[in-house]
Amino acid sequence: MFNLIIKNFSLYYYNFCALKNINLKIKEKNITAMIGPSGCGKSTLLRSINRINDTIKGVFTKGNINVLGKNIYNTKIDVEALRRNVGMVFQRPNPFPLSIYENISFGLNINNKNSINIKMAVKESLKDVLLWDDVKNKLNRNALNLTLEQQQRLCIARAIIMKPNIILFDEPCSSLDPIATQRIEELILTLKKEYTVIIVTHNMQQAARISCDTAFMLQGKLIEFNKTEKIFTNPMEKETENYITGRFG
């Protein structure tokens, strides 16, 4: 039922404690939002789940994060395999400066998954993100020629072609206009059927619109974690109430 369990997790950046003793259990096939003011550590926590924080100098961690029952901070873990299982979509769309086809098939190609029909898989994932009709005749064109919304869809397709368990979204709509935002939100809602989705957002309405559970963070601490409607209608903590009613943040 829970495929992601965070236990007593702390993260330090040199001497600065960016995440303080986080405990969180995230349900599978569900959308969980993380909200909080900038600098509260929500992105840092998200980026700990696929260990992409490893690429930043000066970061070290304490505690566990269990993905499908395995502690991913165990030294013996295969980090590349973890990242194939935990996809990520970034704040700004970041397609590679390659063709659309090469972008989508990237994950399968580096894996040498010969058993999979890559062409079919590319088509499937482009269909899943509702991009197939727009790009089916220009798969060999450079992906950077697409609009920002299409680029973000492509990045989502690039992640789901790996059939991950969890997909992390780091403010996926912050560089998009309202209409594109709405359409990407609709897409994320459809992903819930097959994937566990965790989304970081600075946009409280977005969290309220699409998530089932919401975690509110402040200064590196998890203040409250509950059903989204509870958080937005009847928060337990004073700080949560202050934040969602707009007194700070």
């Binding site: 696929n50 992409i52 690429t55 590349e80 395999a81 973890l82 990242r83 194939r84 996809g87 990520m88 970034f90 700004r92 970041n94 397609p95 590679f96 400066p97 390659l98 990237f106 994950g107 190609n109 580096i110 894996n111 990045c155 690039r158 992640a159 790996m162």
Partner: peptide, 27 residues
Amino acid sequence: VPWKYKEGAIALGATKWQTIRKVVLKA
């Protein structure tokens, strides 16, 4: 080569060498 390309490749499970060969070099 922008960091976001490398980050994208790493997030898809590419090793350092794969990132260099397939993304950095091409970009």
